[in-house]
Design a protein around this nucleic acid. Structure first.
Length: 559
RNA sequence: UGGGGCGUCGCCAAGUGGUUAAGGCAACGGGUUUUGAUCCCGUCAUUCGGAGGUUCGACUCCUCCCGCCCCAGCCA
């Protein structure tokens, strides 16, 4: 497995400089998800960056839920997110934290701003407020409520909090600058009325702080030193700093932004992931085609592979699109060293070995991994009737040995870990389809080269017909047909790949796979990496999910 | 047309005035191999969005231009 050396990055350089200059002693970062959806691969990068920065500098990273909007948030998401962060293998500092833990403090600070004449209760409705805000190129207008006396504001704010004011009638706004070229500074909303029960505070609050009013102060409360977020928050930074500068906060966190992770053939916006579920395009948040951590976990992608992938990415300010092949590389790289080898025939074609006794079962002892000794060996029964894959046989005797390294009529092939055999003739049904191959073994070729003059074209996998375990295989293709499904004018759902799921029944697995365990990874030799479907129950039979196929340079050159 | 940010190989990127312009993915050659896998070796930017300028010397500094992204939720 490759050792991933994290590239240095501009945030680490800032941290190093801050430590050198004595501006910070202990580095504190935080991962601040909103519990309104499941974590996806983009979050994985953010998690790796935030926890990684803390770890690299001997500090700590907090897990804090930014639960300031009860409309869309729920405990289900909190639980799923905690599970996902744990699964990735990170340990946060202290207890799990919540923005809602700080609602009282935030409210007190809002009062402080009011007293200082830096915030006011505004009665403009949403639409009028938008008009007053101005445009990108023209400044805005002051609210007519802007100069309301502080004591009046205080009373009104209390009314808002107590639920005495209807939703939408009032907001608490900061008094900054309606002419600012930065729209975020045009008297932003600090509190809005929401008579919506919160998953943690219940009906205690009728007003909820906005992201801007909450985030920096949460950081300050927790002593976060470096508040790392994605690029789209860069324009919010002046506002972040304005609150820190104008409030008696216990520390002075600083915000830094880096480019969010995009991967081609994927979408990573919670809105769109939800649309995929609600539109029935996938089966849920943990569908193996989803870029969610739960989906990738069910797919068989390991936490280590994901972390290696994230660590291979730079933390920079460019917003690029990483090729999915880079992820796939790390998935294979990790699975190669942790997957037990096994054989499973996906498209079975019967082979009868005419010179092998019908009554005999030869038990072959086979390594669990070609080069790593700690994998336990397994026992493979070899019998007269076997299955090989239909794609591994051809009647076309003109096929060159270089072009087709499999079984050809009249020629030899090595059965993986077993005998060299020769295909003698085929049997067909009335439709003309091949139903069975009659073949013969070359005696003494288990673990030995065949005699001079006999040369196997290649190595193919097989399984004893009498001992095979029937199973179902779920194979996935990319969910989208376009590398950038969100790029065009048409909705991204127009680019959904209708063949993203392939269900293959009647596959024949070697007997050892009957003992397959959820959480274990297997390489079906010459096919790919597979795992048991964690959602399937035992009554449904054996169901394997294909995490990813083996790298196949031959298929590529063929097309 | 306001403000903020970004443009280095097909993709991700290092580079912070003097390096032969790192590295990874992809691709393409070759070797090993009882997985067309893995592994190993090799090839892959005379050039850094463009044009000028400063300098003995520029991817790095200056000017202008071009392109892309973000901000006008009582979302985060």
């Amino acid at each position: 497995m490759s050792n991933v050396t994290k590239p240095s990055n501009f945030i680490q350089q800032i941290i190093a400089a801050d430590i050198d200059a004595g501006r910070v002693s202990t580095v504190v970062t935080r991962f601040p998800p909103e519990p309104n959806g499941y974590l996806h691969i983009g979050h994985a990068k953010s998690i790796c960056v935030n926890f990684g920065l803390a770890e690299a500098n001997g500090g700590q990273c907090n897990l804090r839920f930014d639960d300031t909007n009860p409309d869309t948030e729920s405990d289900e998401f909190v639980k799923a997110i905690i599970q996902d962060v744990k699964w990735l293998g990170f340990q946060w500092g202290g207890e799990v934290r919540f923005a809602s833990d700080y609602f009282a403090q935030l409210y007190a600070w809002a009062g402080h701003l009011v007293e200082q004449g830096k915030a006011f209760v505004c009665e403009l409705d949403a639409e009028t407020l938008r008009e007053y805000r101005g445009t990108l190129t023209a400044g805005g207008k002051n609210s007519p409520y802007r100069d309301r006396p502080a004591n009046e504001n205080l009373v009104l704010l209390e009314h808002m909090k107590n639920g005495e004011i209807d939703e939408g009638l009032m907001t608490l706004r900061a008094k900054i600058d309606m002419q600012s070229p930065n729209i975020n500074l045009r008297d932003p909303v600090l509190y809005r009325i929401k008579k919506q029960a919160h998953h943690r505070t219940g009906t205690q609050w009728n007003i909820y702080p906005s992201y801007d009013f909450a985030h920096g102060q949460e950081d300050a409360i927790e002593g976060v030193t470096h508040s790392v977020c994605t690029l789209e928050f860069a324009a919010n930074r002046p506002l972040y700093n304005w609150f820190i500068d104008n409030l008696p906060v216990p520390s002075t966190p600083r915000q830094y932004e880096f480019g969010r992770l995009n991967v081609n053939y994927m979408v990573t916006s919670k809105r769109k992931l939800r649309a995929l579920i609600e539109g029935g395009w996938v089966e849920g948040w943990d569908d193996p085609r989803m870029p969610t951590l739960s989906g990738m976990r069910r797919r068989g992608i390991t936490a280590q592979a994901l972390r290696n992938f994230c660590d291979s990415l730079a933390v920079a300010k460019t917003d690029g699109v990483v090729d999915v092949s880079q992820l796939e590389y790390f998935v294979r790289d990790d699975l190669n060293v942790r997957a037990q080898r096994a054989m499973c025939v996906l498209k079975p074609l019967k082979v009868i070995l005419t010179n092998f006794a019908d009554s005999e079962t030869e038990i072959l002892s086979v390594a669990g991994h070609p080069s790593l000794e700690h994998f336990k060996t397994r026992e493979l029964p070899f019998t007269r009737e076997l299955y090989i894959d239909r794609d591994d046989f051809s009647e076309d005797t003109t096929l060159s040995r270089k072009k087709f390294k499999r079984l050809v009529l009249g020629d030899y092939v090595r059965l993986r870990s077993a005998y060299v055999i020769r295909a003698d003739h085929v049997k067909r049904n009335t439709a003309g389809d091949i139903t069975e191959i009659r073949a013969s073994i070359v005696p003494g070729t288990v673990g030995e080269d065949p005699p001079h003059g006999i040369k196997a074209r290649g190595v193919i996998h097989w399984v004893s017909a009498a001992h095979a375990r029937d199973c179902r295989v779920l194979r996935y293709d990319r969910l989208f047909t376009e590398p950038l499904p969100e790029a065009g004018v048409e909705p991204f759902t127009h680019h959904i790949n209708p063949q993203s799921l392939e269900v293959i029944d009647g596959c024949k697995a070697e007997p050892s796979l009957g003992q397959a365990q959820v959480g274990e990874h297997y390489q079906f030799e010459r096919e790919g990496y597979y795992c048991l479907d964690s959602r399937a129950n035992k009554e449904g039979g054996l169901i394997f999910i294909c995490t990813i196929g083996l790298r196949d340079t031959w298929q590529k050159s063929k097309t």
